[in-house]
């Protein structure tokens, strides 16, 4: 028995399916329904039914392999047409169920695909030094080491609070500026230092949906923001997946 894994939905046309391989090593196919096309793959039921997927979600290596294959097919599918990716592990019983879903949600798909047409996604991450710099010179101790210690700790604490306040202001300023230029913005939770693999602390983690022709303006806006010594990382252009990902309704 087999199931149908759904990768993405896009507008129809003279379509070739992506070459794959897909999440089960299969070659992706297309399911056409009216103006819409679903990119799907035939996968083994014993590996991809609900119970098997629940088990897979506890296996980090397997999730990673699934996510990479899923993503690769979507990127390939998105090369030419506006494409709405489906979340990982969207599985249907058969092609007829996929076609029915496309019919039922045609208006929603059309809207999403229209939103991302001729637009690209840019990622912006802002980092600041987690540890504020040490004070220049300790005040000479006046024979009161305990008091000096407490005052030093107080200065550390205040410097930390100011640094956090400044970092938050930088993040807000950059986000506001870019959101003003972008068609849509999405601010996510900053990643933990262990995930980002940097010693610096992430204070902004956002993506922006930008008209392809507004790219220069977007870059210029980012360059013009006063970053106050923070490290700004721009990535992209990406296919606008953050603004087109479809969940189960």
């Amino acid at each position: 028995m087999s199931l149908v894994w759904l990768y993405a939905v896009r507008h129809g046309g003279a379509d070739r399916p992506p070459a794959g391989p897909g999440v089960d090593g299969e070659r992706p196919r297309l399911v056409v329904e009216g103006p819409l096309v679903a990119v799907v793959g035939t996968v083994r039921e014993e590996e991809f039914d609900e119970a098997a997927l629940a088990r897979a979600m506890e296996d980090l290596d397997r999730i990673e392999r699934l996510a990479r294959a899923h993503h690769a097919v979507i990127v390939e599918a998105a090369a030419e047409e506006p494409t709405a990716p489906l979340r990982l592990a969207t599985v249907y019983r058969d092609d007829e169920a996929v076609a029915r879903m496309l019919r039922e949600r045609a208006a929603e798909f059309a809207q999403v695909l229209e939103r991302v047409r001729d637009r690209q996604e840019w990622g912006v991450k802002v980092y600041v030094d987690a540890k504020p710099e040490a004070p220049a010179e300790e005040p000479a101790s006046s024979g009161k080491p305990g008091t000096a210690y407490l005052l030093r700790r107080r200065a550390d604490r205040d410097r930390g609070a100011q640094a956090r306040e400044r970092a938050r202001a930088v993040a807000d300023r950059i986000d506001e500026t870019l959101a003003g230029v972008a068609a849509a913005a999405h601010r996510m939770r900053p990643q933990d230092a262990r995930l980002s693999g940097r010693a610096q602390e992430m204070v902004l983690n956002a993506t922006y949906l930008v008209d392809a022709e507004a790219e220069e303006g977007f870059r210029a806006a980012l360059a013009a923001v006063e970053a106050d010594g923070a490290t700004v990382e721009l990535t992209g252009p990406w296919p606008p997946f953050s603004f087109a990902t479809l969940g189960e309704s």
Binding site: K144, P145, G146, T147, A148, Y149, L150, L151, R153
Partner: peptide
């Protein structure tokens, strides 16, 4: 303050 600071130090 001195006492507290010494203790904490």
């Amino acid at each position: 303050i001195e006492q507290l600071g010494l203790g904490l130090m």
